[in-house]
Structures are given as structure tokens and as C-alpha cells.
Design a protein around this nucleic acid. Sequence first.
DNA 1: CTCCTCCTCGATACGGTGTCTCTCGGAACC
DNA 2: GGTTCCGAGAGACACCGTATCGAGGAGGAG
Lengths: 293, 293
Amino acid sequence: MDDLPSERIAAELRARIVDGDLLPGDRLPSTRALAAEHRVAASTAARALTLLRDGGWTRTVSRVGSVVASPPSPVRRRAPAADPTTDDLVAVAIALADAEGLAALSMRRVAAAFGAPTMALYRLVRGKEDLVVRMIDAVFAAAALPPATGPWRARLEALARRQWRVHGRHPWLARALSLSRPQASPALLRLADAELAALEDVVDDPVARFDLHVVLTSFVRGMAVDLAAEIDAAADTGLDADTWADRDPALREALRRHGGPALRRVGDYPYDLQRIFDTGLAALLDGFERIGR
Amino acid sequence: MDDLPSERIAAELRARIVDGDLLPGDRLPSTRALAAEHRVAASTAARALTLLRDGGWTRTVSRVGSVVASPPSPVRRRAPAADPTTDDLVAVAIALADAEGLAALSMRRVAAAFGAPTMALYRLVRGKEDLVVRMIDAVFAAAALPPATGPWRARLEALARRQWRVHGRHPWLARALSLSRPQASPALLRLADAELAALEDVVDDPVARFDLHVVLTSFVRGMAVDLAAEIDAAADTGLDADTWADRDPALREALRRHGGPALRRVGDYPYDLQRIFDTGLAALLDGFERIGR
DNA sequence: CTCCTCCTCGATACGGTGTCTCTCGGAACC
DNA sequence: GGTTCCGAGAGACACCGTATCGAGGAGGAG
């Protein structure tokens, strides 16, 4: 994470401030001095200073340079001067991914849609992975949490269906979730909290409770992969095949060649993911009920 | 699937042979003639002829060109002279993905590991997606199917655990499955068949049966995404964190900031995916049992 | 008002990706 | 032995994510 030279330099300076080596009011080394000391470009050193300023560690004093700020108040550090347009950027990226899929989500294309030069994105976002994580958080944050009252089963069902609907609206989501390592997204944490609260009525053991939360989430995510495939298969072919095997002749052929007797006995299968999701969710919650008893 | 010009041409010629338009011993159009007729590069036309020859439809006669072969015996067609090195290539690719992850799986790197120039891969494999699909098929085909006898629950459990173990051995698999559109892989079809056979003892309605199959498969796949993240997180950090929040300080911090009361009540959570998988599988099969009754 | 310092910005560059194309060397027949 | 043909592989192409660095503007000091 701290692989960028600018971040390495910023971290080092931050350490000196924390250690008391640099006191409030002290001047930090100038951009030029930093550049020479660390053998990096001046702009790299400048970005290190910017990072510190954005973090509230320093302030810039005209004609003097960067100066260690007064011990940052908790409030200051809690809201690190988030550039308001970052949210706009994320919204644009979501729209692009919705329209053209995750594969089309390149920094250059997002920048074009955003009306900014490519490298301007890197001032709002740490990199592509950061952008994707913010997109994930944003789509989950957009839908309101269902009320936290009533029987646990109804609450869990509502929560699962909420996630399912988000996946339906944003087909890229399942792939993004499986590509990016699980992140501490506020919206996802709120979701987890709501699920855990509902699960408190199912099992007392907190570990078992969390296990069930992971199970439910994984189930929805697993189904969402199918949903994503379904949605952009429909987008590709223009028609959404009702029947599984109709979707593509190669599949039907392979089925004929490699499919065993049980598969053949199924015959024409009306492929309807919503029905399958309902079935699976009901089965899983039935299982939860049995655990509770 | 038949998007490549060479395959389109091969398919057309194959159709003419099947129709009797071209009889055994007849000369096929020369490479040049095909190229001119279809307005493609000579090498493309040549590849079409190669495809036919590899499929056993034609043989090459010196100084004459391609000639329609005698009606291929069933045996011949069953084993379409599969270039034996394709399997070697897939094995090399699997080893590379196991060792360095899906991100490192580039055609150039596979070619280097395979000891061949990059473009040589394209004679064994249609492209990268084709390679990945073959990898998926290969890893599922490698493990033997459990015996198809005994109570349905034990059979389903064995099948699910088998898939789970495959995911554990090949962490790239979950991501590959979610990236590639579902393919008609022989090994996966055999798996589906076995699951459906076991499910025949659960529900009579074939549609509901297939629904349950999709549910079970999706559950395993969803859990496998977590498994993949876990495995390569462990590979990155070197240590495998027993406790969920220990894994990375940023997560702990986010938990403190955004985590709600229910999340906090969980406290230190021993993160053990095998236990979670067991719990989830048991819950799901409990649900299946209730449907059966 | 002028000058000078500093910083911000974005064009460019780099090392990668998957795949197509085209040229060249060599083998096989007249 | 000359010519024809084919296949192999090097390079080209259009992208990707992002580090770097030169040019430009903003803003305070004198």
C-alpha cells in the first residue's frame, strides 16, 4: 500500500511529527529539499506534502512552505477534507459500468466520461482498485436498510433480497466483489451489522452467528454471479432465453454429448433466476430455523 | 464460438462434406482459392483446412492438397485426434495460476513456461478465454466422482465437498468461474448430472430439482470467493490470521468507526472458512430435507 | 506593481496485456 | 533442381494502469 514514493515520504514525515521530532509550527523540508534528499522528482515530493496537508498534519503557509499543524482535533481528522467531487466520479464510474460492464471500466474511459484528463482521477482516488471499492460501497449505500423490527426470518429475508436487488441493478457488482479483496466498506459493515442483529434471535453463540452471516452473504454473492452472467448474456444476444439450453446451441450440443441420464431427464428447463433465488433463500432460512431450535 | 474466420470456413466445408456435396477423395479448394473466395488471409484459410484435418474430415495428399477422408469411423470421430500437447499446455497454465494467481496468467507467461513462442499457443487453444475454460474443466475432471449410491444427503454432501476441495487447491478457480461465462464443460456437466441424480430422491418435479442444483452450486461458488481471498491474503502477508479483524489494521479501524452494535458484540471472531462452509452446507441440506418432506 | 517562489496540473512515457498480420525460411513435388 | 506451397514466429496494434516531469498559474513579499 505504501509502495508509492510519495506515500513513503509522507509516512516518514508523519512519523517524525508523531515522534515529536517536528513540533507544531516547525517548517517541513521544502519540495526541492525533499526531492534531493530522496532522489525523486519534485512533483513526487510535492505530492507527499499534499498528502500530509490533506490528512490535516500540516498546513501551508505562504512564502514559507509546509508547517506542522496544531495537534489535529478529532473532528479534523475524522473528516479529512474529502474532495466533494470524488462522489461524482464514483457515480460516473457506476453509470459506465452499468452501461458497458466491468471490462469497459478503464481509467481512461472513466476520465473521458467524467470530463477530465486521465491523471486527474488519481487525485480523487488512489487507483483503480480504490475506485472499484468506492463503487461497491456506493451502490450498497444507496438502498435503504429495511426496518430492524419483526421476526428474524422476515428481517434476514428482506436483507438478502435487498442485496439481491442491488446485484440485479448492477451486474458488474458480483465480479467486482470477487476480484477485489473484501474491503472494509461502511455500507457493507452496516449491512453486516443489520444481519447480525437479526441473527441474534437465531443463535446465542456469537461465532455461530457470524458464521451464518457469512453463509447468507456468500449464498447471495454466488447466485449473483449467475445473475451477472445471465444479464450480460441477454445484453449480448438481445433475446433473453427462457430455456436454459436454448441460450446457446453449443451448450445444447455439449449437453447431448456429455450430459448424463439425470441431466437428460430434466429436459427443457425454464431458467428463471428469481425463482431459483427464492427457492434457495427459503431453503437456507429453513436450515437456519432448524439451527435455532 | 464460431467467430473466428478460420472456423467459419471450416464449418462451411464440413457442412458440404456432410451434405455429400464433397465426396471422399474429392479435392477441397486450395488455400489460395479459399482465401480469395472468403477474402481472408492465406494463413486463415490454411488454418481452416488444418482444423478439418485435425478433426479427421480430410487428409492431406502431397502435391494435391486437402482431400476428403473416408467416412470417419465412430472411433475416429470420438477421439478427434486431439493434439496431445493441448492438455500439456492446460496443465502448464494450471500450474502457473496455482503458483502465481490468475492475474499472472498472461499468454506470454504461459508460453514462456510452456517453452514455446507466444503465438504457438493459438494453435492449441482458441484464445485466452478458451484456455481458462479448459483449465476449469481440467481441474474439475481431475477429481473422481463419489459413488452414486447411498442416501441423497450423503451424496450431495460429498459432491459439494468435492467442489469445495477443488477450489481449495486452485484459488484462482472462483475468480475464473465468475469471469468466464458459464461454459458447457464436460466435467461440470458430469458433476451436474451426479447432483441431479442425487436430487431425484428429494423432489419429483424436474424443474425444482434443477433449481436446487443451481442453488447448491452457487452456494459453493460463493463460499469459494471468500476462500480465494483468504488464500491469497495469506500468501501475501505470509501469516494466516486466525482472527478476522487481525488480518489488517485498516479493517479493524473501519470496524471501530462504522461497525454497529451487533457487529461489536461479536468481538474477536475466529475466521475459519472450513467451519463456515460446514455450517452453511448443513443448513442448506437441512432446508433441502424440509422441501423433500 | 513587480518579482519570485511554490504548487498544481496533465501530457507523455513505460511496461505490460491479448491478438492479428505478414514475412520469411524450409520442405515437398514437378 | 526449380518452383510452389505452407506453417511458424516476430512484430505491430490498440489498449491497459499509473509514475514522472515540464510547463503553467496562483499568490504573497518587497
